[in-house]
Nucleic acid binder design. Structure first.
Lengths: 152, 152
DNA sequence: TGTTATTAGATGCATACGCATATAAATTGG
DNA sequence: CCAATTTATATGCGTATGCATCTAATAACA
């Protein structure tokens, strides 16, 4: 529970927090996107594998996966084709909906995701691990979770 | 001062916070990038105008501006050309460094930035204004500022 | 100072991207 | 239960992107 009663915040405080969050995200990503793990796969491609792995059952329809990504649906469709060609993802017909495709990681896709993930975690930790105390990271996690869950 | 003594945080707590922040950012951006203000200019282009406006003196060299963006240097170079063609930015020789170009907003560039900015702020506020209390937004701002300033 | 290394920006090229739209299947509602 | 609408994915097409590299200017240093 983050539990505080919510009178809506002022525009200024809201926007200042958002801009600060956004800029922090950019600063971290700039550093981390240059790391060697993203030479095998782009960050956007890694993000697809990551989101697919954490899906319930490790499977997802294209459109559902797309909700977690900033990329457009047609771009995702083509990216999935490329990842399929690389043997990292499979596209199977959904028995319950003839229009839909069930995506899932191949064993190699999972392995690649985990390998890149390990490196990525290491580099994120190198970048920010000492920036905040444990309690502060916990607070940050709670605030951003709450923020995210409030989005319609 | 956010003032807490910093024993380095555990990997888990750090990464959980980072992932949560990242996902919150994606969720907000997904909503907000669909808004009509980004039909005139893409979000990346707007971000260039925004960052140029808040530069000290409203001017910046290409490479310095680039540090605040996720886009690559060649892409920024070409984007600047396009924004120049649209009359929103000027590229002037830097008297102190013959290699460099000083970028700045034209009056129209400033006007466009401010117009899009106003809409953008409104939509961000609509999305997240009631998600957290005023104190929580303040905390979030402080934590993310501290996070950002810690990045080498 | 002359040579080398570094830095700023631009450009060629292959490719990934977004938008508009097509196709085909599912849902709605008369 | 059929026509109209909506939903899921794919594709055509023009453009923006990133990587590698180029040129030109500055910095480093021997």
């Amino acid at each position: 529970m983050t539990g505080t009663s919510n009178t809506p915040a002022s525009v200024k405080v809201t926007i200042d927090a958002w801009e600060s969050l956004f800029r922090a995200q950019v600063a971290v990503m700039r550093k981390v996107s240059a790391k060697p793990e993203f030479h095998k796969l782009s960050m956007r491609e890694y993000d697809v594998l990551f989101n697919l792995r954490i899906c319930p059952g490790g499977r997802s329809r294209l459109v559902d996966l797309n909700r977690y990504l900033l990329i457009s649906q047609p771009s995702l469709s083509r990216m999935v084709t490329r990842l399929e060609d690389k043997g990292l993802i499979t596209r199977e017909a959904d028995p319950t909906d003839q229009r839909a495709m069930q995506l899932s990681l191949t064993p190699r896709g999972l392995a690649v995701q985990q390998e890149i993930g390990r490196e990525h975690v290491k580099h994120i930790y190198e970048q920010i691990g000492t920036a905040l105390s444990e309690e502060e990271f916990l607070q940050l996690q709670q605030l951003t979770s709450k923020l995210r869950s409030a989005i319609k």
